[in-house]
């Protein structure tokens, strides 16, 4: 069960939040975990838009020992030259506060970041139900 949404305009971020919330409720995540997942989705979607020049997100229901939601954000933007730096709290290459990636990692159970300069960035985040 998966769903792909485009991230091409600021309004799309609101649609991503709504879709992720729906998926989180369906996977029976608690309210706090729902909120963490939706907030994380919002942060990464904004990165996809602002730094990746747009892309899309795949929303998947995953099942291991427990149910969970996995989000895969992909863009074909300029990529991230220095991943360690990008994951540092407070560091930003833009005008934000530099919390998007590092903060999102704290909110999630699993966090994967892959990027190649010139080819784009993929961020995969997962939240499991408790």
């Amino acid at each position: 069960m998966s769903d792909t949404l485009p991230i091409r305009a600021p309004e799309d971020i609101v649609l991503v939040r709504t879709a992720v919330r729906k998926a989180a409720i369906a996977a029976k995540l608690g309210l706090v975990d729902q909120t963490k997942l939706v907030t994380a989705a919002s942060e990464i979607a904004r990165n996809t838009l602002d730094y990746g020049k747009g892309g899309d997100v795949i929303i998947e229901r995953v099942q291991a020992a427990k149910a969970g939601i996995r989000l895969t954000f992909q863009d074909q933007g300029p990529g991230i030259p220095n991943l360690d730096l990008a994951l540092t709290d407070g560091w930003t290459s833009g005008s934000g506060m530099g919390l998007g990636l590092s903060g999102t990692r704290r909110l999630m159970d699993e966090f994967d970041l892959a990027s190649k300069p010139g080819e784009g960035t993929t961020v995969i985040i997962t939240k499991w139900s408790r």
Binding site: L31, V32, Q34, T35, K36, T39, E43, D89, M97, L99, S102, G103, T104, R106, L107
Partner: peptide
């Protein structure tokens, strides 16, 4: 502010 929002904000670092 909703409690779940407060928890999330602080963990986010905000």
């Amino acid at each position: 502010m909703q409690p779940a929002v407060a928890i999330t904000l602080v963990e986010l670092g905000l």
